[in-house]
């Protein structure tokens, strides 16, 4: 989510609530004889408020799951998730008296910290990366379609090479005749055997393996500069009318590179969720256990 001026109200309200909680905490910390404690009434209020905010933040995933529910726009839920989720961190800290505690409490504080840190990292990634993807990935497609599109690209490259068919012992390409005497006239432009073999070898050894493997980040053709030089060399092997075939292959490799880049960006943009979401649910479960244990046996 892009954090812009439209978040101002959320930021101000969150800051105000934080200041209120901080004042409350300072009053309570200085006035209570034994110092702040999670089991005290103010401590329980802080803990309860923090847990409710965590529950609210977790409910975003349920909201996403049932998109037909008309229970508020997802954007509002997301903003609430971001800012109220963040506010839950100081509240829980105030509940814990600014200490990490021991045993389950320590584990809970540690998990909460990781959840908050991954959440903030995720928010930062979501703030910057969409623009980066837009700028750097020219030919973007739907993430789940990348494999399919790459297969299509590989087939397209194959068919381009097939268009350079072998006639007797020579490679050649049927191209539109230079002189338009007949509308559909074509001319066979012949490649030397050496050029044909070199072209096929370059395709089999470099282009085809690059196109058939998703990622292939270490491949020569993944580097745009080296790829450009590679195709420039190939062009010198063939006569002018056949060069569009090389241009086509280069364009296919460029698109494949874009898709690989998109794939990598997409993973970076979403990988943090693999840590954030399970830990958040673990936190809720353990937090519930902690509450029951503390209230029942504390």
């Amino acid at each position: 989510m892009h954090i812009d001026r439209s978040h101002r109200a959320w930021v101000l309200w969150t800051a105000a609530l934080f200041m209120l909680a901080l004042c409350g905490y300072l009053l309570y910390a200085f006035r209570f004889q034994n110092g702040p404690s999670g089991g005290s009434v103010p401590g329980l209020i802080f803990g309860g408020a923090g847990y409710i905010l965590m529950l609210y933040a977790a409910f975003l995933s349920v909201r996403k799951k049932f998109s037909r529910w008309r229970i508020g726009r997802a954007t509002t839920w997301m903003r609430g998730h971001l800012w109220l989720g963040l506010l839950s961190y100081p509240l829980i800290f105030f509940h814990a008296g600014l200490s990490f505690g021991h045993g389950l409490t320590f584990a809970l504080m540690l998990i909460l910290s990781v959840v908050i840190v991954t959440g903030v990292a995720g928010a930062a990634l979501q703030h910057y990366m969409p623009r980066m993807i837009t700028e750097r990935v020219g030919r973007e497609t739907i993430y789940y379609q990348i494999d399919r599109v790459q297969q299509d690209l590989a087939h397209e490259a194959d068919s381009l090479l097939v268009s350079l068919f072998r006639k007797d012992t020579q490679y050649g390409l049927l191209v539109p005749a230079a002189e338009k005497t007949h509308a559909n006239a074509t001319t066979l432009v012949v490649l030397s055997e050496y050029s044909g073999d070199q072209l096929r070898k370059a395709y089999e050894d470099n282009i085809k393996p690059y196109l058939s493997h998703r990622g292939a980040y270490r491949h020569t053709l993944h580097d745009a500069r080296r790829a450009k030089s590679f195709f420039a060399d190939l062009r010198t092997l063939v006569p002018e009318p056949v060069r569009p075939v090389i241009d086509g292959l280069e364009s296919i490799c460029d698109e494949k590179r874009d898709l690989d880049r998109q794939s990598r960006f997409h993973r970076i943009l979403h990988f943090w969720l693999l840590v954030h979401v399970p830990l958040a649910f673990l936190l809720l479960v353990l937090g519930g256990i902690h509450a029951v244990m503390a209230l029942r046996y504390g």
């Binding site: 989510m1 998109s67 969409p130 623009r131 993807i133 943009l269 979403h270």
Partner: peptide, 16 residues
Amino acid sequence: LDNCTRCDQCVKACAD
């Protein structure tokens, strides 16, 4: 696209 995280929530909501 500066805001879109390509999460496809729009597509899922449409299908739902």
